[in-house]
Each structure stands twice: as structure tokens, then as C-alpha cells.
């Protein structure tokens, strides 16, 4: 099966086959023998690649893989050839495309609100400050855009996952 991994701005193509501890990965014309074991569920894997032993954290978030190796974090978008073809035939352009919903990453108290609806923000701009664990934490814009709505008020206590802002 062919796999496409989009990582750090490059696309890597590889073929994977085999079962159990006897997997074969063909990448750039090179064949690697792989054994993958989930040693500490849900995310710590032991990977032996051509007898090189690695420990890697891998988390799957709907086809978006978060991989951590020796403290370095990578985001890899992985598709097999089926998924890639499926994506090609799925109609694009949902109504809410490009809308980013910003949710509370933890329960906390809204200390300050630094934007209001209609504001145009740069990527990385501070949007609001949430206090938890004695610390004040600034939530920043994950991408540039316009604030569509602000769903909380200053001084409000919010639950984990609560929608705070919508960015378009």
C-alpha cells in the first residue's frame, strides 16, 4: 500500500507491506525492515527500523499525526492511496470553510479579552488571557483572519472545550 506523508512542507511517498513484526517500508528506492510495537498505550511506540531502535510518541488526530522524537515535535498528515483518491472525489467547499473555532483548552477564568468582532488579526496575536493553575495563559490566533464572534465575557468562568471565539 502506498502512503503519502506531508511533513515540514515536504511530501514523502512510501510503500508499506507485511504483517506483525515483519514490515517493509520502501522510501526513495531504499527498502527498510521495520518492527513497530505500542509499548505504552496510547501513544508510546518502540520502532526498530533496519535494526536502529527508536522510541517515538505518535498520536492520531483524524489522519493528522503528532509525532515527538527526542523532544522534537512534528505534524504529519498521512494518507494512504485510498484516502487520497477518496479526498479527490469528495466535493470541496463547505459553507464554513476557513472558519476556526477557538475553544478553551482547559477550564479557567477569562482575565482579559483583547479583541472584538470585526477585528483583523495577525497570526500569533494575543486574543484573550485565561487563568488556571495560578498562571495566566494567553491564547493566540492560530492563523491570520477576522474575528467573527466573541462568545465569552471578561471575568467569565469557562469549562474545558467551551467556544471562546470564532475566527474567519
Amino acid at each position: 500500500m502506498r502512503y503519502y506523508a506531508q511533513i515540514d512542507g515536504q511530501m514523502l511517498e512510501m510503500d508499506i507491506e507485511g504483517e506483525g513484526d515483519d514490515l517493509k517500508v520502501v522510501l526513495d528506492g531504499e527498502t527498510l525492515v521495520a518492527s513497530l510495537r505500542l509499548v505504552s498505550p496510547p501513544s508510546l511506540y518502540s520502532l526498530i527500523l533496519d535494526n536502529q531502535s527508536h522510541e517515538v510518541f505518535v498520536e492520531n488526530r483524524n489522519g493528522e499525526y503528532v509525532v515527538m522524537i527526542a523532544g522534537e515535535l512534528c505534524h504529519a498528515k498521512v494518507q494512504d492511496e485510498r484516502a487520497k483518491r477518496l479526498a479527490a472525489v469528495t466535493p470541496k467547499g463547505h459553507a464554513n470553510e476557513g472558519e476556526v473555532v477557538i475553544r478553551a483548552p482547559m477550564p479557567g477564568l477569562v482575565i482579559s479579552l483583547d479583541v472584538s468582532p470585526g477585528d483583523v488579526v495577525e497570526k500569533g496575536k494575543g486574543l484573550l488571557v485565561l487563568e488556571a493553575m495560578k498562571m495566566q495563559n494567553e491564547l493566540r490566533a492560530p492563523q491570520a483572519g477576522t474575528i467573527k464572534s466573541v462568545n465569552v465575557q471578561q471575568g467569565e468562568r469557562v469549562e474545558n472545550g467551551r467556544v471562546l471565539l470564532v475566527l474567519t
Binding site: 506523508a5 512510501m14 517500508v25 521495520a34 513497530l36 520502532l47 522524537i69 522534537e72 504529519a76
Partner: peptide, 8 residues
């Protein structure tokens, strides 16, 4: 390595 791990 990260790409291979994710694909595997």
C-alpha cells in the same frame, strides 16, 4: 523518521 513512524 517521523514520517515513517506516522505512516507505520
Amino acid at each position: 523518521l517521523a514520517a515513517i513512524a506516522a505512516a507505520l
